[in-house]
């Protein structure tokens, strides 16, 4: 039962990822792409936890944590760039 639910959730998360990906490519402004990127990374964190669970490897949780940290810094850096321009 739990396995079925996890598979269902993984599929739903996949669709969410595709929707965000669509916004990433469609834009239209740079800011829209950055927002889409932000959402993609948040979904990615959950995605990594899914993989950790399905593979039964707790060490992947550290990967998720570091990924969250780096993507946060990345979004902040890009936002700074947007603010000031080149």
């Amino acid at each position: 039962m739990a396995e079925l639910l996890i598979n269902l959730a993984a599929m739903i998360t996949g669709v969410a990822f595709l929707l965000a990906l669509w916004r990433f490519f469609a834009g239209p402004a740079d800011a829209d792409r950055v927002v889409a990127f932000d959402v993609l990374t948040i979904i990615g964190i959950t995605g990594i936890v899914f993989v950790a669970f399905l593979e039964g490897r707790g060490i992947y949780l550290d990967v998720a944590l570091v990924y969250a940290l780096l993507s946060f810094l990345g979004v902040i850096a890009v936002a700074r760039y947007l603010e000031r321009g080149l």
Partner: peptide, 11 residues
């Protein structure tokens, strides 16, 4: 996952 989907949809 459903809320993640709603986020994507909102986006």
């Amino acid at each position: 996952a459903a809320f993640l989907l709603l986020g994507g949809l909102g986006l």
